[in-house]
Design a protein around this nucleic acid. Structure first.
Lengths: 147, 147
DNA sequence: TCTTTGATTATAATTGTTACAATAAGTATA
DNA sequence: TATACTTATTGTAACAATTATAATCAAAGA
């Protein structure tokens, strides 16, 4: 699964004339394989043993490249730093208010909401996003136990 | 309408033991009366003629106070700074990718999505948010004209 | 009036991100 | 292979939004 995504992503990059450097390969691989929607700093820290001389600017540069190629989505929630998500299928995010964990939640796209919104406001709609907030099972259990 | 909201908001603050200072009054009034979802800096700039000595820290401090009192919602989109929205009824936001304008879009809350999400992931859901992106009528027209 | 608490101010510090210049690595062409 | 040319990386400086801190000020209670 991961390998397929990685191969596809590399193909996409190649087809747009973007060079595939070891750093790019590693960053992309990490985002795809990571289920945790990492921040730029997470990525930097995770790869610093493999690339001791890599600059944090490289991470940002390449995240922008990936974003422009449509491979990666930038998520901006309440916290201080952006998180990055490999683009696969339609899914929304559930966010735990207690521990900050982000979980994917698969659900068919809300096309009819887009249509209605477009009709009411005259916008030309391109996409939408939704996040659902709450307390994850782990934190819920922990809270009751501590009580 | 604005006055009712303002009075309610001030009551809420009073009931939680928060002092109502001239700065707080003005900030709150500005957010309620503003239809433009201002940033902290917008608020600071808008009020500096009325309060020449007001610090930007005061704006941030009080936005936090309002947020903790449930009066104001902090919106974090792609741009660099947060925007603040007075909490009224259920509505979503439509955002213009071209000019950044934010328009309210009234729509019944997607309760069934919350329920399904809760069922699938075990989260205890508290709320959700959704944003719809696209091009607003003004920018759309302008784009075709310029062409 | 005195004390205490809370709010504001001014400024320093922090943090995430971007810009920039220099160096390094690939790629293409002769 | 040698040469120029393009692109990527690095290190660091700059920036902008936000938060922390300490000092001053204002209000409320005893």
């Amino acid at each position: 699964m991961t390998e397929v995504h990685l191969r596809d992503a590399l193909d996409t990059l190649k087809s747009t004339g973007v060079r595939i450097t070891p750093q790019r390969h590693a960053i992309l691989e990490f985002i795809i394989q990571s289920m945790s929607h990492p921040t730029a700093d997470d990525i930097y820290k995770a790869l610093e043993s493999k690339f001791p001389s890599m600059s944090v600017a490289t991470v940002y540069n390449n995240l922008r490249v990936f974003r422009e190629a449509g491979l990666v989505k930038e998520l901006t929630y309440g916290d201080s730093s952006s998180r990055f998500d490999f683009v696969t299928n339609d899914h929304y995010h559930m966010i735990c208010d207690t521990c900050g964990k982000i979980v994917d939640f698969h659900y068919p796209g809300l096309d009819e909401v887009e249509h209605l919104a477009s009709h009411l406001t005259g916008f030309e709609v391109s996409y939408h996003r939704m996040e659902i907030y709450g307390v994850c099972p782990t934190c819920k259990e922990h809270a009751t136990k501590v009580q």
